[in-house]
Design a binder for these strands. Structure first.
Length: 293
DNA sequence: CCGCGGGCCTGAGAGC
DNA sequence: TGCTCTCAGGCCCGCG
């Protein structure tokens, strides 16, 4: 599910219940996420104070007083849910809200404050890993990530140089986390539509000419900025799994221009085209062939 | 090095 | 109802 806007929405939901708070107990209900959690996973978290909760691309990073950092990735179907412990539990077991399927709550953080934070992930493509802060720079999971799309260093010049010489499609390039880190299938489709650029275009066609970024690169950067900012504002997109940490839906899916709109009319004024779908690198691409060139 | 396809998992929905 | 098939917000790995 989660691309940058969904992860950022989750971060904002978790921040008030994690930052400055102490993890009293970690309830490990399943340790085999995408890969097995570290043997000392629980021990390194229990009793720790969370100093800050940040985000890098699609990763959440909880900074601990011990000097460790807890990395969390939501994979395709991961979500966090914040609940309140009302003391209605038997030891070691939290009394979950009725009529809610919490069978895939794999890791549950019981905070000293009484907040209960459950990581739910049916497909288990998500994962967590604890690394010393001093080793973050060499952490394989983070090393190689490109610039943050909403950060200062991501601009037309940066995008143009990252695309230079790339024979692959523009869509594949944008999905490559080394080019820009945080976009996924939905927001790549949406950004390309808003920039009126074809997903089939060769990535290298965005490269600078005469040392100056092309208009295409500028248009694409501004489309990426606007679509991500709008999606964050809307609490992300809720298609299947994504919820805000309160359980509420995000609502950016109502603003999709092309994603999941196969055969529907193009939303570009006076275009009159129809949204098409095809498979690129094993993933669905939605676009309007009439106005995306 | 680069680009592509397969695989990892579970669940929802369509079609029969 | 139930089976089978396809598809899903990601990313690592191995192959050519």
């Amino acid at each position: 599910m989660p691309e940058l806007p969904e992860v950022e929405t989750v971060r904002r939901g978790l921040q008030p219940v994690m930052e400055g708070r102490i993890i009293r107990q970690v309830e490990l209900r399943r340790g085999d996420l995408r890969f097995p959690l570290q043997k000392d996973f629980v021990a390194r978290l229990e009793g720790q104070k969370v100093i800050g909760l940040g985000r890098r691309a699609k990763y959440l990073l909880a900074d601990l007083a011990s000097g460790d950092v807890l990395l969390m990735h939501l994979g395709m179907s991961g979500s966090f849910r914040v609940m309140q412990d009302r003391g209605e539990r038997t030891p070691g077991e939290f009394h979950y809200p009725r009529s809610e399927n919490r069978t895939h709550d794999h890791v549950v953080f019981h905070m000293a404050s009484g907040a209960v934070i459950a990581f739910n992930d049916p497909r288990r493509f998500g994962y967590m890993k604890i690394v010393p802060r001093s080793e973050l720079a060499i952490e394989p999971l983070l090393r190689g990530l490109g610039p943050e799309p909403l950060g200062n260093e991501f601009d037309a010049a940066m995008l143009a140089s990252a695309c230079a010489g790339k024979k692959t499609s523009l869509k594949a390039a944008l999905l490559d986390q080394r080019v820009v880190a945080g976009l996924g299938n939905i927001y790549v489709c949406e950004a390309l539509f808003r920039a009126h650029l074809s997903p089939k275009r060769e990535a290298s066609t965005l490269a600078a000419r005469n040392g100056t970024p092309t208009d295409h690169a500028k248009r694409l950067v501004s489309a990426i900025h606007s679509v991500l900012n709008a999606a964050i504002e809307a609490g992300g997109s809720s298609l299947r799994d994504h919820r805000q940490t309160s359980g509420e839906f995000g609502y950016f899916q109502h603003s999709f221009q092309v994603y999941d709109r196969e055969s529907e009319p193009c939303k570009t004024p006076r275009c009159g085209g129809t949204v098409k779908r095809f498979t690129q690198n094993g993933r669905s691409t939605f676009w309007c062939p009439k106005c995306q060139k």
